[in-house]
């Protein structure tokens, strides 16, 4: 069997397994529903919240198993920036550099870029421009 066919089969089995897990996670709420029916309490205001609880547990189990055991739903084709930095850094024994680098890059992005030139010709009396203004005196 080729690699592609093997991976495709794995994806298909994965989706089937996720549906089975979701159904199994709804069994406790189903037992409560069966008890309600057996005792004659089957009304819409008891069944609808139970369905919501069952759906919630099913989706939670789906997400949990997907993230914990089967990997994410859509794996990114390009590695994330921190991962890329860590791959480079690990070659030099600098695994912690990735986080610092990303934090620094965010600081650079968030820093306010001045919208006016550093030398403000219209405001030569300001303290910051005193030295520059004195150059123009001669």
């Amino acid at each position: 069997m080729s690699n592609l066919a093997h991976s495709s089969f794995r994806n298909e089995a994965r989706l089937y397994l996720l549906y089975v897990v979701a159904g199994a996670a709804a069994i406790p709420a189903g037992i409560v529903y069966a008890v309600l029916v057996a005792t004659g309490w089957e009304r819409w205001w008891t069944v609808v919240p139970l369905l919501a609880v069952g759906l919630g547990t099913a989706l939670f189990a789906w997400r949990y198993v997907e993230k914990k055991y089967l990997g994410k739903r859509f794996a990114p084709a390009v590695p994330a920036i921190p991962a890329a930095y860590n791959v480079q850094g690990s070659a030099f024994g600098l695994r912690a550099v990735g986080g610092i680098t990303v934090a620094a890059s965010f600081v650079v992005f968030c820093a306010e870029v001045p919208n006016r030139p550093y030398i403000d010709q219209a405001n030569s009396s300001g303290q910051g421009n005193a030295f520059i203004a004195s150059l123009d005196v001669d």
Binding site: Y19, A22, G23, A26, I27, A29, G30, I31, Y33, A34, V35, V37, A38, L50, L51, G54, L55, A58, L59, W62
Partner: peptide
């Protein structure tokens, strides 16, 4: 017996939840 009816109801509930998960 009663247990059989309960299992049928659990099955029905699980099938409805699976359909809702499918729609989601």
């Amino acid at each position: 017996g009663l247990l059989k009816a309960c299992i049928e109801n659990v099955e029905r509930f699980v099938l409805v939840v699976l359909f809702l998960v499918f729609l989601f």
